[in-house]
Design a protein around this nucleic acid. Sequence first.
DNA 1: ATGAAAGCGCTAACAC
DNA 2: GTGTTAGCGCTTTCAT
Lengths: 354, 354
Amino acid sequence: MSETRKRLKPTIVDVAKLAGTSIATVSRTLSGSSYPVSEATRLNVTKAAEQLGYTPNLIGKMLKTNQSQTIGVLIPSFQNAFYIQIIHGITKTATALGYTVLTFSSQRDVQQERTIINQMLQKQILGLMIASVDTSSSTISHYIENGGRACIFESNFKDSHRFILAKTDMVESGRLAMNYLIEMGHSNIAIITTPLSKQSRRNTIKGCRYAMVDHGLEFTDEDIIIAPFERELDDGLYEFEVGRDLVDLLINRVKKYTAILAVNDLIACGIIKGLKKYGLSVPQDISVMGMDDIPLSSMISPTLSTVHMPSYTLGQKACQLMVDAMKEKEKRYGVALSIRPELVERESVKKLSR
Amino acid sequence: MSETRKRLKPTIVDVAKLAGTSIATVSRTLSGSSYPVSEATRLNVTKAAEQLGYTPNLIGKMLKTNQSQTIGVLIPSFQNAFYIQIIHGITKTATALGYTVLTFSSQRDVQQERTIINQMLQKQILGLMIASVDTSSSTISHYIENGGRACIFESNFKDSHRFILAKTDMVESGRLAMNYLIEMGHSNIAIITTPLSKQSRRNTIKGCRYAMVDHGLEFTDEDIIIAPFERELDDGLYEFEVGRDLVDLLINRVKKYTAILAVNDLIACGIIKGLKKYGLSVPQDISVMGMDDIPLSSMISPTLSTVHMPSYTLGQKACQLMVDAMKEKEKRYGVALSIRPELVERESVKKLSR
DNA sequence: ATGAAAGCGCTAACAC
DNA sequence: GTGTTAGCGCTTTCAT
């Protein structure tokens, strides 16, 4: 009884012993190597492995090969359907390409974001797809310098050329939404937004401005109502509540608006709710327009007119790019992907007759 | 120039070399070991590590220690807020306890679920928290036999005593909802549900039955309307659409119902939408009750009366249990956690005067 | 308090 | 076609 190995998980050594071959042969058979192995031994090994209930230990492999075929996805929140859609897209293509994806949420916490990225690096996850809340690119730079490839969906730091950029065109999105409202006869339009700390937000506003200017309409900072703070609620209602509560502010303005444009659907839904409190109904009394096109938007009443962000597609395409980048030895710089948003006309905007 | 190491990521060896100590000392300093190291060398090593931009390679550590401080969470869908809440709870406590959590979605695909579990095993992720869609427990059994610890939120196989059970009490939940409707004066109540393939669904229905029987009310299978199929839509609207479309069926019944009970909120929201199509308003014409209490439920109009599942709490407590289990050498069996649901009274149910 | 050395499970030269 | 062996980066006895 001296030969009894620890009754723990069997390794290739055990398989080799049982099959009566070398561990190299076992490895070659079981790891899908292209190395030639005779049919006879292959069968033998497979059988032995099965008999022992052998499960390969990827850690061993990873340590040796220094690659994990894994992509880490880091988003600010699981509550936001926009990110969830991106993840969906990523996961689907990644899986198809033989990659595993790990999903993390930073809960909009910069410190946590940094920690997670560093942990990914430590775990040799050399592919990172991220919607960042950081204002500095140093963590990601560090990540890249250590051999990682990064794809950025959102960020607040100046875009460097060291990673893949995959964004929805927010300027276009703002312009699209605003144009639509204008074409529907609106000219007194309020914009409701969370703080402009994120570049994407600023871009959206920029797009709105362009549209107004294009139509020769007046548009001042007064017309932009900014939520006083940003945070992450555990129940995912934050933005909804922002919209709902900012209605109070809006309603007391001297200037009367015929339409409200929210920088995302969740806020827009909150606005509709808030307006109900005042007995105002959408779109009869006032029109509301969102941005993102999350599932919720077609569930509420009235259904929300919005701008569809092809986030699912974005996730897919970005992931493809990512995998390409991970496979290449050399880093490609300045790869960029921009997805054009589309207008979705539903019930929450009324056509004004002039 | 013969000593130039590959200009790749520095390892402890490099740090040791620079600090002029042994790799053992470096490991002891940097890995937070309790082993005594003199302040002087500690400082030296730290400095050297910093200077080199050293990042520890967790893979090496994992291979050696055979533990990754990682918990894998596997849910059927990212679209369902109920799971998202659980994940939230898990992530928060796990992080606090120094564990990393990996989130996966099986997209309700049994095959994918199995693949993911096996991959986790291969990657030495020895903690699994899962809402399973599998009908067989064999994959999870295999996982456990190989040293994994599992915590089950939902499953369709007979509960074994080999893992931690963490469920919401669905029978109670069904009873609670039904009781409420009955107390509000309803006796003609329809139940709308997705297929009863999941045990939790069957339990819910069981609870409903109990409530009816308790009140001496009649309740036949006729009153249960079952969706013809189950699937996962990319846009997360599936259950909403089920609810919306099953209204068509319901409306044509001879028996007239005064209330509808949906087995989850998403379906309930769909029902409200569907009823609108027929010009029926909730709760004036008919009452609707949901189950789950997802954020959406307080966003729609009318706000949805439902049964709150403390999924966030469930995630937290389960995670605590999980970490305990992972720390213990010996497996504990039959640990179980059951969370009691709570009634949430909102606007979608009308009190009937008899 | 520090160092030398033996692996953790696996792959990939390199021999035969 | 198969076996031998040297590590991947790290922790951890066991000496010193």
